[in-house]
Amino acid sequence: MRKDRRNFLKKLGVASLFGIGSAGALDQYFKKTVYAELFKEDGLKENTTRWGMVIDMTKCEEGCTACIDACHFQHNVPEISGKKEEVKWIWKEAYKNAFPSKSHPFTKEETQKDPVLTLCNHCKNPPCVRVCPTKATFKREDGIVMMDFHRCIGCRFCMAGCPYGSRSFNFKDPRPFIKKINPDFPTREKGVVEKCNFCAERLAKGQAPACQSACNNRSIVFGNLGDPNSEIRRVLMTQNTLQRKTELGTDPSVFYIF
């Protein structure tokens, strides 16, 4: 950080001292600094990688589960019925549940009605990584919040820490609940936590995440937030987007268009 902000505060102080800073100019300045901070800080220089995703809910088809099915097959996610022990990497959630602080009684009808696609946000400041006692959950240099299933001790501290409910625990052996096993990806043992990995195994081969590939409506844009010329950056520059629970300081890498 924090040089930019410090400079900004300094300038703010000087400006108010002389009574010259018009609100507009400061606002402009602040926006620029924050924007730059978002993409440059934390060792993330321009042209380094921070994977991110924009989900365009205006294009997402109601009732379609293509992305969910593709992801859950790709990663051998068991299909356990009932809320108690279900495992999910990507799923649909009512708008008021996914965006509790942004939902209000007069929300646009289709926004209110159509469930939102939710998954791990691969936060820039992930609380799950902060609380994990064994580094079984960690953040890669490219921003992906990964899980090492070999190391997880199943304490579920990360599940208490995640403010998005993006993590699932294997309360029992998941194998019997996988309808069709994908031989290219391991299953899990009972007793470990799991979640979306932004298809790290596909990215390694230069493939797009399974959910994006499966979507026929092009409602998912995946790309490098660190590359100013990437499609995802272009979308973010031109459209109004939201992150979930920004007030918690986690800085999600998943953005939404409504």
């Binding site: 299933f149 096993i181 031989p183 391991p186 299953t187 899990r188 043992e189």
Partner: peptide, 10 residues
């Protein structure tokens, strides 16, 4: 083998 699949299982 409780997670990774052997060729037979594949």
């Amino acid at each position: 083998w409780s997670c990774h699949l052997s060729s037979e299982e594949q």
